[in-house]
Design a protein around this nucleic acid. Structure first.
Length: 206
DNA sequence: ATGACGATTTACT
DNA sequence: GTAAATCGTCATA
């Protein structure tokens, strides 16, 4: 019998291949109260580890913060940045190979009402359009209540967060472009390591 | 012990 | 288009 949950074998690939394969899959977040929040992945960036100036593990850097990037493929690497935002990655390759894919945008699919509440701080929830819920790495983290308590979570067996098999995108539906917010990475800033669904409006703003 | 800096978002001119 | 918000992390000393 086949399960809807993606298994280890799906994640054990190089980060570029995995990033493209992640497009079209569904991220599932189960809250403590049982609420299920889901979204279809429409934008992902690949981080290539040691040689990649933009990666947190550039040069083999290994710290308490990025420890999860060294875990086996299919684990969550959640980091805190700018003093206020969380972003989620999914590890690629295998154990001791610090590569990962940053989930940058989702097309909200289930639990939109809860997402809207989680996303609305001082803003009127009714003023938040669907396209504003998960169109950015920190936005989707906020919408799905993803924080550092999920750092290091194994997506292949966690009851709190996992991936559900969806329909993969055809190659001609995938657009490649430079990664966002990594201008400090010199030549690595220009490489086309950001991938998104050409047809989706739920993309982070340029 | 200190300081510079974010794999961002939002609000404002 | 410009700038503020806001603080954990890490390199330097």
């Amino acid at each position: 019998m086949s399960s809807a949950r993606l298994t280890r074998r799906f994640f054990r690939r190089d980060p570029v291949t995995l990033a493209k394969a992640l497009l079209g899959q569904t991220l599932v977040r189960v809250l403590d109260d049982g609420a299920e929040l889901t979204g279809r992945i429409v934008e992902v960036e690949a981080y290539l580890g040691q040689p990649d100036r933009a990666a947190h593990t550039f040069g083999g850097r290994r710290t308490a913060r990025n420890a999860s990037m060294w875990l086996d493929a299919g684990h969550a690497y959640v980091y805190f940045t700018y003093g206020m935002h969380f972003c989620m990655n999914i590890t690629a390759d295998g154990a001791e190979v610090p590569t990962a894919c940053l989930i940058r945008a989702l097309e909200p699919a289930g639990g939109l009402d809860v997402m809207r509440r989680l996303r609305s701080g001082k803003i009127d929830p009714a003023r938040l359009r669907d396209v504003d819920l998960c169109s950015g790495p920190a936005k989707l983290a906020q919408a799905l209540a993803i924080d550092r308590t999920l750092d290091g979570e194994d997506l292949t067996n966690s009851p709190r967060i996992y991936l559900r098999r969806g329909r993969p995108l055809a190659a001609d539906q995938i657009v490649a472009s430079p990664r966002i917010g990594v201008s400090y990475a010199k030549e690595w800033a220009q490489k086309p390591l950001r991938f998104h669904d050409a047809a989706s409006p739920h993309i982070s703003k340029k």
